[in-house]
Structures are given as structure tokens and as C-alpha cells.
Design a protein around this nucleic acid. Structure first.
Length: 210
DNA sequence: CCGGCGATGGTCT
DNA sequence: GACCATCGCCGGC
């Protein structure tokens, strides 16, 4: 079943946890759909959250976070990677869920050739930048669209196969946020675990900090 | 396998 | 003008 506005209109952390195991679906320009199971998310919760883009208040970029739940928020990091988020919580409260990874990616529907500009089908897309690249999602096209709306080319489905257990950890890449960086607001299942090399790297970084 | 670093541009204190 | 909610390449072991 397709996730509606009521699903997103709840506490960010609850939404982030429950998004794990659901299916991200993107309707491609040629009518096919590219879909994958969400295996990793992060919650960004309110203006007080020192890691949330709304921490500076209602700025031009972050304004969308204060809007209605279910809306897509796409931003650019490091000058090259787009990140996909869904606005959550009641209107007026700035929060969103970052989708950090999907697995079991596949194309559904007629047509065998990927449309112009869309990369070859990846088996999985773990990592927020890889995800948006693999799905052909970018800021210009998708920022501000309504994923809970009828006509959206991008939506999420619960197919009744969510995992029984979801792991948590601190969010990634938000060291600057001080105490907020330690909140266990990253949610994931096994496939989201980085390959050995990347995992060791992150571990080293963690060790260095403490 | 592991750590270091460059790319690249939008956003803001 | 500094700082990123990252990624992939390259070099050293």
C-alpha cells in the first residue's frame, strides 16, 4: 500500500524507523518504474536539532522542512551529490527523513533500455549520493514535489515485508552538531552496512574522536 | 586492506 | 570565505 500523508505526519524518528523495509518507487520518463527497498534512513528533527538544516531557522533552503509532510526535499552536498528526504511531522515543525540507501533495485514495466541520462540499473544503491544518482533524482526536478500526492512520479509503498528488527546508530557525517551528533537517529537493516573497507574507515574515525 | 584527499557549488553562522 | 547529511580514486602497505 502506498504511504499517504498521514504516514509522514508523525514524529520523524517513528517515520524514519518505519520507512526501513518499504519500497521507494520512481516512475521513469518512459513509463517504467525503478524501485528498491529502503535499507537505511536518518531522522532530522526540528530547529533545535543541531544537525538539521532547519537549525538556522526558516531560511530559503530549509523553508520546505516547515511545510506539509510527504513533500520531497532534495539538497546538494559537497557540490555534487543530491540527497533525498521526505518532510515529516505537522506543518510548522521542521523535520525530515533522509533516505540513505536502497537494495534489490530493479526496473518494472515495459521497455528494456534506460532513458537518456539515467544510469544503468544498479543492484543496490547504499549511500545517499549513490541512491539519487541510481534513481535519477535531482534537486531541480524533484525538490518540492509531493510524494503523497496522486500524480507524483516518486512515492513509497509498504508491501507488508518490513523487517522485524531495525538497527540504530548515530547519524553519519554530522560531527559538527555536538551532542546532537550522538543521537541514535540512523535506522538500518543488514544490507545497509557498508562494505568491510568503508566500515573499517568509519570505525577508525570514530576511534580517533574518542 | 586501509587511509588520505580532491572534486565542486550552494548556503549561511 | 568557510563549511558541508559524499564518493571514488590513488598510493602505501
Amino acid at each position: 500500500m502506498r504511504l499517504d500523508r498521514a504516514f509522514f505526519d508523525r514524529d520523524t524518528r517513528e517515520v524514519a524507523r518505519e520507512l526501513v523495509g518499504t519500497w521507494l518507487v520512481h516512475r521513469l520518463p518512459d513509463g517504467r518504474r525503478r524501485e528498491g527497498r529502503i535499507v537505511e534512513t536518518e531522522a532530522y528533527h526540528g530547529e533545535d536539532d543541531g544537525a538539521c538544516h532547519a537549525r538556522f531557522g526558516r531560511t530559503e533552503r530549509a523553508g520546505i522542512l516547515f511545510g506539509p509532510p510527504g513533500v520531497v526535499y532534495v539538497f546538494l552536498v559537497y557540490g555534487m551529490h543530491h540527497c533525498l528526504n521526505f518532510v515529516t511531522g505537522r506543518e510548522g515543525f521542521a523535520s525530515a527523513v533522509l533516505v540513505r540507501g536502497v537494495a534489490d533495485v530493479r526496473d518494472v514495466g515495459s521497455g528494456a533500455v534506460a532513458p537518456e541520462g539515467l544510469p544503468a540499473l544498479p543492484v543496490n544503491a547504499v549511500g545517499p549520493g549513490r541512491l539519487t544518482r541510481g534513481f535519477g533524482i535531482d534537486r531541480a526536478t524533484h525538490n518540492g514535489i509531493d510524494a503523497a500526492g496522486r500524480r507524483s512520479p516518486l512515492w513509497v509503498e509498504d508491501r507488508g515485508d518490513r523487517p522485524g528488527r531495525v538497527s540504530t546508530s548515530a547519524r553519519i557525517g554530522v560531527e559538527y552538531a555536538g551532542a546532537w551528533a550522538k543521537k541514535p537517529w540512523r535506522y538500518f537493516v543488514a544490507p545497509a552496512r557498508a562494505p568491510a573497507s568503508r566500515r573499517a574507515k568509519a570505525k577508525g574515525r570514530r576511534a580517533k574522536r574518542s
